[in-house]
Amino acid sequence: MIEAQQLTKWYGPHLALDRVDLAAPQGRVLGFLGPNGAGKSTTLRILTGYMPATSGSAVINGHTVTDDPFAVRRSIGYLPESTPLYPELRVREQLHLFGRFHHMSRSDRRARIDYLTDRCGLDAIINRPIGQLSKGNKQRVGLAQAMLHDPPVIILDEPTAGLDPAQIRDVRQLIRSLAQKKTILLSTHILSEAEQTCDSLTIINRGRIVATGSPDQLKRQARAQSRIVMETAADPQSVRATLAALPAVADVQHESADDRWTTITITTTPQAGDIREQLAQTAADQQWLVRELRHEIGSLEAYFIQAIDGEQKQSA
């Protein structure tokens, strides 16, 4: 279980986190989504106790981060952003080293490393020096290290960075298979990734939480403000005037596609949804020549960009 309340972090005069709330119950994968520099890593570092928040509190697995840092360190597996590993050690030695820090017995370590070698696909590299490994392989070693002591809470900072599509799929399956028993918090800036892996998402931008919900909820919100694109040969000004008068239409924009055709973009009101039938009827009544009528379904990406743009406009 992860619970953070009102986390605020100042770096000198720069406000990196502004009253961030996070909640991840057990058995869930929480995705922490945001553009680069939004404050994702800062938040994760505060949760793991690597650095303190200026104010606010965080509780991991029932332990307050600032009061009981060692209990927190024992209950988390953490993959930092840059996947720091000792280049001079072999993969097996690196895992044994951190197993020893967690006071695992030699036989425990061996059993666990054998298991993780299998789960994380380390068979081919387990005896190789880490300095020789590719980014993707290092990432897998880092993941194995985060799961080494079988912690109840796993915190992963960009776990799929540097992986190829096949490896990303493997990591996603690994995370999903762990999800029932653990609390997993992962940060990413790749939306499709978050959508497929996570049970709930928190979107952060410029140190502030801008949206929270399941991927479906967020998509529904995105869809609510959908757009309809129409290509017509009719006079753009009269089309705009006619359409703007419709109650379901919030905004109409146009740009000419070529000499004859014009692309009209119609933003509907949040309640209206898909109004293509109504538009087709209007076009027929007005005798407009129409060659395309398309409903642009709001994607999570659209919502993400919209949420972040909205935030930026507000603060500007």
Binding site: R73, P84, P87, H102
Partner: peptide, 14 residues
């Protein structure tokens, strides 16, 4: 410099 301190400082090592 390499950032390995982050792994060490979040492991149960005082």
């Amino acid at each position: 410099n390499t950032g390995t301190i982050e792994s060490l400082a979040t492991a149960p090592v005082s």
